[in-house]
Computed example of a mutant assay.
Amino acid sequence: MGDAVEIVRGAVDGLDDLRPLWLALRTHHHQVAPDLGPVRGDEETWRLRRAQYEEWLTNDPRNFVLVARRGGGGRAIGYAFARVADSSSPTWDGERVVLDVETLVVAPEARGAGVGARLLAVLREEVARRGYDRLTLTVVSANRDALRFYEREGLVPTFTVLRDTRGTP
């Protein structure tokens, strides 16, 4: 991949650097799961996602974004957006603080070079440093490459969401 990759914390004023990566992820999701329907256009999807990111960063200081850049502050080639959730269950005992990975994306040309694994390692360090109970994330079930990556990284399915394909969408 050439230049070394650095992972830094991002901020609200740098969110627009993430737009191309978000658009690549949106396109990839549509490619692996076209049966979920049409996707939003570039401007609308980024406007909605950026607003969510800004709100999450502004409203809870525990939330953060990690940005992977080529050495020397080059362009973003990956990012992970994480939100902290206080969780409890009527079934399982105890209150839990969970670091939920809302988005983890690596630019298509940078995949397979360890960027995703490095982002995940920094997320795990944050879980340990802050004393959170666990790290969670959601994956589109048709995204087989992502599932294989996360399983290689030691993540396992916990809950499965099923969608009725016989009824109305």
Rank of each mutant, 00 (worst) to 15 (best):
R69W: 01
A4L: 10
L123H: 05
R50T: 02
R40P: 09
G72T: 08
V32P: 03
R124E: 07
T168Q: 04
R166Y: 00
D13S: 15
E126G: 03
E95N: 15
T160E: 05
T160F: 13
L25R: 01
G14Y: 01
F81P: 02
R148Q: 04
V65I: 08
R134M: 08
D164M: 07
T168M: 06
P108F: 05
F159D: 13
T168K: 07
G131Q: 01
V139L: 09
P169C: 00
M1P: 07
S87K: 13
V84S: 06
R75F: 00
D100S: 11
L119G: 05
L36R: 05
V32H: 05
E102H: 13
F81S: 05
N59F: 00
R75L: 04
Y79N: 07
G114Q: 12
A142N: 13
V122S: 01
R40F: 08
D164Y: 08
V98A: 03
V156W: 02
E43V: 07
T27A: 10
A82H: 07
P38W: 00
S141I: 00
P169Q: 06
G74W: 05
H30I: 02
V115E: 06
V161T: 14
A24L: 11
Y53D: 05
A80C: 04
A33K: 05
P108S: 07
D16Y: 02
E151H: 13
P108Q: 14
V8T: 13
P157W: 12
R62V: 01
D17R: 07
R144H: 15
A110G: 03
A51G: 14
L155D: 06
T58Y: 05
V122M: 10
E109W: 00
W22M: 15
F64M: 09
D16I: 02
L147F: 10
R26Q: 09
F81K: 04
L15D: 01
P108H: 04
Q31D: 12
D100E: 12
V140N: 14
W56G: 11
V140A: 08
P157L: 12
H28Y: 12
Y150H: 10
R96P: 06
